[in-house]
Amino acid sequence: MGSSVSPDGSHGAAVTAENFGFKGPRGWTFRSVSIKAEPGSLIAIEGPSGSGRTCLLLALTGRMRATEGHAEIGGLPLPRKMAAVRRISALGPVTSVSELDPALTVAEHLRERALLQRHFDGSLRALLRPRAERAAATRGRIDEALEAAGLDLAALPKAERTAVRDLERLEALRLSVALALIGRPRLLAVDDADLKLSDTDRADAWKLLRSIAESGTTVLAVCSQAPEGTTAVRTVAATPTPAGPAAPKSEAAPDATPGAAPAHTTEATPGAASTDTDQDTTEEGTADALAETGRA
Rank of each mutant, 00 (worst) to 15 (best):
P93V: 03
E99L: 05
A13L: 11
E46F: 07
D191M: 05
A243P: 05
A155N: 06
A145N: 10
P240V: 09
R141K: 11
R111Q: 15
G75S: 13
L170W: 10
L179C: 04
A145Y: 01
K81G: 03
S10H: 11
T29A: 15
E46W: 09
E171Y: 04
L42H: 05
G74W: 00
P245R: 08
A90K: 00
G21L: 01
A14Q: 14
P130Y: 11
K23F: 05
L60S: 04
P245D: 10
A172E: 11
R210S: 09
T29H: 05
T105Q: 11
M1C: 11
G69I: 12
R86T: 01
T235G: 04
E144S: 13
M64D: 01
A137C: 06
E160I: 07
R234Y: 05
A289P: 11
G140P: 14
E251S: 13
V33L: 14
L181M: 13
F22A: 10
A252N: 02
T286C: 13
V85R: 02
R26C: 06
A84N: 11
P245A: 05
T277K: 08
G27S: 12
A154W: 08
P77I: 08
A243I: 06
A237T: 14
D101I: 13
P240H: 08
M82I: 10
T257W: 14
A261C: 06
G150H: 13
R80D: 15
A180P: 00
S49H: 12
V94E: 02
R134Y: 12
G216D: 13
D255Q: 11
A256C: 07
T67H: 09
D278A: 09
L78T: 00
L42C: 09
G50N: 02
A260D: 12
A296H: 09
P25Q: 07
A13T: 02
V233T: 03
A132L: 12
A226F: 07
G92N: 00
D101V: 09
R234W: 11
G2I: 14
S211H: 14
P240G: 04
I212A: 04
E284F: 11
P227V: 02
P93S: 06
P262A: 13
E99A: 15
G47V: 06
R118S: 14
F30I: 14
A232D: 01
V15H: 01
A256W: 03
V85Y: 02
G27P: 09
R53M: 04
L58K: 03
A213Q: 08
L153G: 03
S49W: 06
E283Y: 07
G92C: 09
I35W: 02
L115I: 14
A261V: 05
A136N: 11
A135F: 03
P254Q: 08
S274H: 07
R169K: 11
R161W: 03
R174G: 00
L175F: 05
V15S: 00
G229Y: 15
A180G: 08
A213N: 00
T61Q: 00
